[in-house]
Amino acid sequence: MRTVNFAPLNRSFIGFDQLTSLIDTATRNEIQTSSIPYNIESFEDNKYRITLAVAGFKDAELNIESKNKALTVKGTKETTEKAASKFVHQGLKVQDFEKSFQLGDHVKVLAANIENGLLLIDLEREIPEALKPRQIQIGKEDLAQH
C-alpha cells in the first residue's frame, strides 16, 4: 500500500487542509473496512442514492448512522446455534462489514429500504436560501442612506 504525504501541499495551499484530511481519511477507511459492493447514483440536481449489496442480512442486522457529515452502514451477522454445515463449495460468504461515506454540506438522509438483497439509502442536499445564488440589481437602492 502506498501512502501519500500531503504536508508539502498544506504549506503551499491555504484552506485546503480539510480537503487533504478527507482524502487521507477516505483512503484509510477503504483499507480498514471489508469490501462490499455499492453504487452511488445522482438524480436530478440534489438527490442521490447509495445502493449496497447486503444479501444474507436481515433488517435487524443492519445499522445506519448519520453523524458529523458521515454516513456509516454496519452489518453484523447474528450468530445462531444451528448445526454447523459442511460446505462442498462456499462462494457466498456473508460476513460483518462497515462502510462509511463522507457527506457534503447540507446533505441529509431521507430514507433507507431493502429490496431484493440491496440496501437503498436515499439522500438529498438542501441548500439554505441564504446560500443559494441570487441576482443583485444595480441602482435599485442608495447605499449612502443606510
Rank of each mutant, 00 (worst) to 15 (best):
V94P: 06
G75T: 00
E124M: 09
A53G: 02
E44M: 08
I138A: 15
Q90A: 14
A60C: 04
S35P: 04
T27W: 11
A84K: 11
H89K: 05
I36S: 06
Y38P: 00
Q95P: 00
I50D: 02
E124Q: 14
Q32W: 07
F13A: 11
L131P: 00
Q137Y: 07
E44S: 14
S100W: 05
S66I: 10
R125N: 05
K99L: 09
A130S: 05
K140V: 00
N39V: 09
G75L: 03
S12A: 06
V88T: 10
L22N: 13
L92R: 07
G104P: 08
A84I: 04
S85Y: 07
K77G: 03
P128D: 04
A70F: 07
I121Y: 11
I23F: 12
A70M: 09
L110Y: 10
E126S: 14
R28Q: 13
E98C: 03
E115D: 12
A144Y: 11
R49Y: 04
L120D: 10
L131Y: 08
I40N: 02
K74M: 05
E78K: 09
F97K: 00
T76Q: 09
E41L: 13
K47F: 15
D122H: 10
V4E: 11
E65R: 09
T51V: 15
G91E: 14
R2W: 14
A53R: 07
R125C: 05
N68F: 04
L103Y: 02
E41V: 12
P37Y: 13
L92F: 12
K86N: 05
Q102R: 01
I114Y: 07
V4A: 02
F57S: 09
F13S: 02
D96V: 05
S85M: 13
I36M: 12
V107W: 05
N116G: 15
S34Y: 13
A84E: 13
E115R: 13
F6G: 06
A112M: 01
P128V: 01
A112K: 08
D142T: 08
K140T: 12
A111S: 12
F16H: 06
L9W: 10
I136L: 08
